[in-house]
Design a protein around this nucleic acid. Sequence first.
RNA 1: GCGGCCGUCGUCUAGUCUGGAUUAGGACGGCGGGUUUCCGACCCGCAAAUCGUGGGUUCAAAUCCCACCGGCCGCACCA
Length: 503
Amino acid sequence: MSGLPEQLAENVVQLALRRGFFNPTAEIYRGSAGFYDLGPLGALMKANLVNYWLETFVRQETSFDVYLIDGSLILPFEALKASGHVDKFSDPKAECSRCGRVHRLDQLIEEGLGVKVEGKSIEELQEIVRINDVRCPNCGGELTGFKEHHLMFKLAVGGGEETAFLRPETAQNIFLNFKRIAYAMRAKLPFAVAQVGRSFRNEISPRQSIIRLREFSQMEIELFFSPNRDYSIRDFDDVGDTIIKILTREEQRHGGEAIEIRAKDAVEEGIVPNRFLAYYLAKEVRFFQSLGIPPENMRFRHLLPEETPHYSGGNFDLEVKFSFGWKEIVGNAYRRDYDLTVHSKHSGEDLSIDDNGVKILPHVVEPSFGVERILYAILEHSYLEGMRDWPVLKLPRIVSPMKAAVLPLLDRENLTSKAWEIYTALRKGRRQLYVLFDNRGSIGRRYARADEAGVNLCITIDYQTLQDNTVTVRDRDTAEQVRARVEDLEELIFNDMYRGLEV
RNA sequence: GCGGCCGUCGUCUAGUCUGGAUUAGGACGGCGGGUUUCCGACCCGCAAAUCGUGGGUUCAAAUCCCACCGGCCGCACCA
């Protein structure tokens, strides 16, 4: 279930390297595990994905207000101490002196002795091991090398070397800015705050190319609401009818299948804790379906109690079926009022706001999208072999990096200069289209290259173009060609981006 | 972090077992030129590998030995 051993994954990674979607950071120095750069096509694709997400989850959201912010990547010690990350976001570890296996110390003690050790320091844990003679469960050897593996990158800020961390999730900026946003925007519950940006986690041994990174991008929303009111959500009437697949806790224990249920019914039956969460689950399914991921390859896994923090009111991971198994691409968490409570307490600021004349601390539902994983999911679901003599990347037209390629049928002066003229007009056009120009090799070779890069349309300039100012427009997915007038091209390419999005 | 497998042009690979005739060969891709009126066409040419790195054995090492580095897989960990 882990690693990328499958042929498909291998082909996708190779194509990504060959065509400039992504590659290891500092590759010429053999790279550094867990860090990847997006190449020319990957960077454009990411920008398009983020933009489409912002359209869907921020700009076009009319069920409640969504405010977009852009916070600092570096957060001071106190903020992350309060959030619990400083204490909780690390694993105590110990190594067996005989067989060399590394174990998680807290798990070892909790399982072996049946005592809770949450929040205990590494020294305290070591003492417990010594007193109770806890040994390696694998071979019975003695434990050594006690140490804390911290998942946050620590920084020393300024001359005084004040301790700070690279944020482990974008969410914290939102809680830290909650009061300011609420007042500045005169926000009324329910409302949401969204953020797109980088987060950092110092994983022990990341693998699986772009799937598990130490530096990654998140698109997150925190939706604030009162737990005491029964809201109607405008778009839920419609969106709530979406069928979603949920892998319940019971089914996970039996090794069973996900159940299929309308999002509305999932709330009614108490499977999903509230309407806001169900609303997002349904919206996510529609979002990813429009990005070419079939519903049968998506499921929400209700995380088991031992996988979720004590304050959680329920976490539902959106998992996508990859060639190497199911993997989370969105985490949906019902965080209750945990974050605002701890930040109120530690900062001394009253973070409660007025709701219908009553001061309350709002509850929070958090959908958290992993950008690189989504990019990879789209690539894998778009990669197609066997259709032509070369692989075709049937990327969702809205996120594909290049919307069209402008190609002279032959590299002859009159055709090439006409093609260049058309290319320039599109590049400078108001629709802000990214298009490429290619006059090298035969026309078939250029179609093949364009297919592999996932270019939506190929515009070919031939001798008829010089007569009547029309061109052929070839569709990547069908290879069919139609004739179009040059003056209609920009609108044609633009409208083509939205094909199939009326889901 | 431990164990197994692997490391030759950008990519795939021949050669490694059985050391020497290899200026380390080919294919794909790339680049230049020619040709070509729509799907990796064809022809000519060019560039591209200190054989992962370092040390050793030998008259001679891509080839044998040792160490290290990196990758993949499994275990552990993890979004």
